[in-house]
Design a protein around this nucleic acid. Sequence first.
DNA 1: CATGGGATTGACT
DNA 2: GTCAATCCCATGC
Length: 215
Amino acid sequence: MPTRSSEPLPASFYARPVLEVAPELLGCTVQHGATAGVIVETEAYHEQEPACHAHVGLTPRTRVLFGAPGTAYVYRSYGIHALLNAVCEDEGVGAAVLIRALRPIAGFEQMRERRAAGGARTLRDRDLCSGPGRLTQALGVQMTENGTSLVDGPVLVLPREAPTEQVVVSERIGITKAAELPWRFSVAGEENVSRPWPWRSPRSGTRRTRAGETT
DNA sequence: CATGGGATTGACT
DNA sequence: GTCAATCCCATGC
């Protein structure tokens, strides 16, 4: 039972350009019940670019995306995984930050149980939340949390305790539209990040680092 | 109402 | 490297 060391981030934190919020969420904590982890990877999405679900306009599915900043947008991906986003910018604007990876800090055993129940075979600490579908599984975040408040819970986002880390920028992962936008943010040297496939290497030799610059 | 496409993961060749 | 699993919903007839 982790003691909440501080109050959740206020809605005003999210009511800003999504490209500001996405890197600033790095280092913040996502907490759900007894499980929690520090955000180490995010991606920004905005209605004005086609990779964002809100790009198609207001529909039953995207309603939450156009809602109040600080709301959780949870959607099902590939029919299997629930992906967690934080709705940003003003109400009426469709924008959100996808939480792609966490460094687990509390509730390790419960995370392991949930991940094992979900079929995971590797249960090292760094496999628990190193991917957008993995972290929701580990934290027990489901579609039922779609539309709930990240300020009032049940899923909470708490401010970071340590100041600025080294932010690494790169292209978003797993999308086909607007894939060139450098809207993915992670922490330099962080091990608990998602790696759906090796980061682009033209021909031979596996590149370890692929990134733009820091801020 | 039928169809098709994912902001993924894990297993396998 | 390839591939299947499986659900929500946008789109089109």
